[in-house]
């Protein structure tokens, strides 16, 4: 069994424990309870709050001057803000579905546009993805989130989590890919044949192939990608 839909919602078996008390899903909004601590969120994604909150734009892309330079160079514009205060803050973005991801020291790779919020304790950075980026239409760089804590990622429609094991590699449409975590190698695959050049392509000429051990998040919708047209 490779499909683990139960992993998305913190159920009784989920083992999210105390972390859930902080990030709560309310329909298509994310409620975060803050008691003087901070959370990182996508710029402008706050829809409501009670109590006292302060919003401050972060130097995205990573911490410090290095992160700032990286961000400028890579074009991975992760415009994020730091929300600090006491009370409850609700986040949402274009009525997208929200998925909670718990990290225990591993790294989550996610497109910057799909990252809604993350624990302040998680480190965010930018990494090179190789050829894949060109076909996904998201650029050659992607955002990494690492550490221990919770992150909220957005998807168009409710996402499925697909497990990749060494025996079962996974191929994903670049437009439907949103994030992955674990020890995975990815490479880009193309099924371009003479038919494609005759205008008889199936629309599935490009795929990302994941090998190794980990989880891949896939949304039931495809972004407009270069690869999707051929």
């Amino acid at each position: 069994m490779r499909i683990l839909p139960g992993d998305l919602s913190p159920g009784p078996h989920g083992g999210y424990g105390r972390l859930v008390a902080m990030f709560r899903l309310q329909g298509r909004t994310l409620a975060v309870d803050l008691t003087g601590d901070a959370v990182k969120a996508k710029n402008g994604s706050m829809v409501a709050y009670d109590g006292r909150m302060a919003f401050k734009k972060m130097t995205g892309g990573g911490e410090g001057i290095r992160g700032m330079v990286t961000r400028r160079l890579t074009g991975e514009q992760m415009a994020m803000m730091e929300v600090k205060g006491q009370g409850t803050c609700w986040f949402a973005d274009r009525a997208g579905e929200i998925n909670l991801v718990t990290l225990h020291g591993e790294t989550l790779y996610v497109e910057a546009s799909n990252l809604l919020a993350a624990d302040a304790g998680l480190r965010t950075g930018t990494t090179f993805t190789g050829l894949r980026g060109g076909a996904t239409g998201n650029g050659l760089f992607t955002t990494t989130v690492e550490g221990s804590g919770q992150a909220a990622i957005m998807s168009d429609g409710s996402a499925v989590v697909l497990r990749v094991t060494p025996q079962y590699p996974l191929n994903v449409d670049p437009g439907a890919y949103i994030a992955h975590q674990g020890d995975l190698r990815q490479h880009f695959q193309s099924g371009v044949s003479f038919r494609t050049f005759m205008g008889e392509g199936s629309g599935e000429s490009f795929q990302i192939r994941f090998e190794g051990d980990g989880l891949v998040y896939v949304q039931p919708s495809e972004r407009n990608t270069v690869g999707g047209d051929v």
Binding site: T29, S45, V47, K56, A79, M81, A92, D93, A95
Partner: peptide, 22 residues
């Protein structure tokens, strides 16, 4: 941070908020 303007609602009642900025 993109959150320069906010509506502050005070008193007693309820407010309905949508999951989108559109």
């Amino acid at each position: 941070s993109g959150e320069a303007f906010q509506l502050e609602l005070s008193g007693s009642g309820a407010v309905y908020v949508q999951a989108s900025e559109e």
